[in-house]
Amino acid sequence: MNVYEVFLKKAGKDEFRHAGSLEAPDAEMAIMYGRESYSRRAEGAEMWLVERSNVIEADPSFLAANADKPHRHNDGSAVADRRKRNRAQAQENEQS
């Protein structure tokens, strides 16, 4: 038996999402079991199955965030602060 990862996509613009996994002897049975296990109530309009051995996995340590690179976490606050200061300065200049 092989393990397959099951992805479902609803009709419309939604993306494929991981629904779960299943065991099946081969691709044909995996599709049958995929429908019966994950899409019996029309949870998906499209289904992808990927044999787990074909999934490329990244090492979690490789994915861990680098704490010393705050510029990668740009939430716009620095720009917003600067614009706020500029607006206040402009108002002051007008009044004077």
């Binding site: 038996m1 299943l22 065991e23 099946a24 049958m32 079991y33 019966e36 296990s37 019996r40």
Partner: peptide, 11 residues
């Protein structure tokens, strides 16, 4: 005999 088959057969 296994979960997936259980679901399919009961369906």
């Amino acid at each position: 005999p296994f979960l997936e088959e259980d679901l399919a057969f009961c369906s």
